[in-house]
Amino acid sequence: MIEAFLIPSLAVLVLLAWGIDYINGFHDTANSIATVVSTGVLPAKYALVMSATLNFAGALAGTSVATTIAKGIADSQHVVPAVIAAALMAAITWDLLTWWFGIPSSTSHTLLGSLAGAVVAHAGFGALHTKKLEEIGAFIIISPAMGFIVGMLLILIILWVVRHFSGHKVNVVFRKAQLVSAAAMSFTHGQNDAQKAMGIICLALIAYKFHLPVDAKAKVIIPLWVKIGSASFMALGTASGGWKIIKTMGSKIVKLRPIHGFAAETAAAAVLFTTAHFGIPVSTTHSITGAIMGVGTSMNASAVRWGVAGNIVVAWVLTIPISALLAAGFLKLVAPFF
């Protein structure tokens, strides 16, 4: 199916999708390594290499999220090439804007908001699969709440288990344990977020009448070149780092020690493994931020910088409507070219 690149407009869509993958990589690097860097467990350059490698591996694991994007958001006959181009351009614009200001917004939700906005501008609300969108919309609230609750419970359990250990021993143990939790977070980030670009590329292939087979569970069989390309651009973006957001996630919300970083990363990874299994495209950003807030609240509610947290939540609320409006605007610009 490499012949897809012989169609110039389709090639542009594929490259735009890989572009959002690359931007997602450096925009969301903080999700995977902010805590492990801020607690001093790993130097930033080694954390980036580890995260990029595991992002690549995670991107190749499973296709449930990609199937949701490719088949679950809207009727495929209304997802024409111009709609896909507008959605990708809007998502790239919002991701770059929030990265510039160091705001850990959700690439997942800007993609979904952009795609929904472009579809509505093209064919009206009736073209959307509202039931699936309601489920995804619910997880905008559920995923950070799950991260918050699991993070809070996990740190309380861990603190009870180690209550008789010396502070030095606890620090030594969890500096090592945090390597495992950061690795799990990196893997699940790749598993969740790279699949979204795969789903968009599959939408583009369907729009250009390429046949994509499905397996016995009705999941789209993603072409190997789509998987490798998406995984590679995600890993390259991660390796380039997103220092503004790393600073926000790692220290501006709450000051963490290795034991707290381990709890936050483990909680977020558990949420992401679960949602990826069920094909629900949730936000890694929302999950890890919720977990960090939950861990911080268990330490002392005043330890959380709620002003910073409030700014992040405002960005979360604005992401989908602004992305949808941007996509509707971009659709008018790109329609003549597709």
Results as ranks from 00 to 15, higher is better:
residue 6 L to W: 05
residue 7 I to F: 10
residue 7 I to Y: 08
residue 12 V to G: 05
residue 16 L to F: 14
residue 20 I to Y: 11
residue 21 D to W: 03
residue 23 I to V: 15
residue 30 A to W: 04
residue 33 I to F: 03
residue 34 A to K: 10
residue 35 T to C: 02
residue 36 V to P: 06
residue 43 P to S: 11
residue 46 Y to D: 11
residue 47 A to C: 01
residue 48 L to Y: 04
residue 51 S to I: 06
residue 52 A to S: 12
residue 54 L to T: 08
residue 59 A to E: 04
residue 62 G to W: 02
residue 73 I to P: 01
residue 73 I to H: 01
residue 79 V to R: 01
residue 82 A to Y: 00
residue 83 V to Q: 09
residue 91 A to W: 04
residue 94 W to L: 06
residue 95 D to S: 15
residue 101 F to T: 13
residue 102 G to C: 11
residue 106 S to P: 09
residue 113 G to F: 07
residue 114 S to T: 09
residue 118 A to R: 03
residue 134 E to R: 07
residue 141 I to M: 13
residue 147 G to V: 04
residue 148 F to P: 00
residue 148 F to M: 06
residue 150 V to E: 10
residue 155 I to L: 13
residue 160 W to C: 01
residue 168 H to R: 13
residue 174 F to W: 11
residue 177 A to I: 07
residue 183 A to S: 15
residue 185 M to W: 01
residue 195 Q to G: 04
residue 195 Q to Y: 05
residue 196 K to C: 02
residue 196 K to L: 05
residue 200 I to W: 05
residue 209 K to E: 13
residue 210 F to G: 08
residue 212 L to N: 05
residue 216 A to D: 13
residue 217 K to Y: 12
residue 229 G to P: 03
residue 232 S to C: 11
residue 232 S to M: 14
residue 236 L to N: 07
residue 238 T to Y: 01
residue 239 A to Y: 15
residue 240 S to V: 10
residue 240 S to R: 13
residue 245 I to E: 02
residue 247 K to N: 12
residue 248 T to S: 08
residue 256 L to D: 01
residue 257 R to S: 15
residue 259 I to R: 03
residue 260 H to E: 15
residue 269 A to R: 04
residue 269 A to F: 04
residue 270 A to F: 15
residue 281 P to D: 07
residue 291 A to C: 01
residue 294 G to D: 06
residue 301 A to I: 14
residue 303 A to M: 09
residue 305 R to T: 07
residue 306 W to L: 08
residue 309 A to P: 08
residue 320 I to S: 10
residue 323 S to R: 01
residue 323 S to V: 02
residue 330 F to P: 07
residue 333 L to T: 12
residue 335 A to G: 00
residue 337 F to N: 05
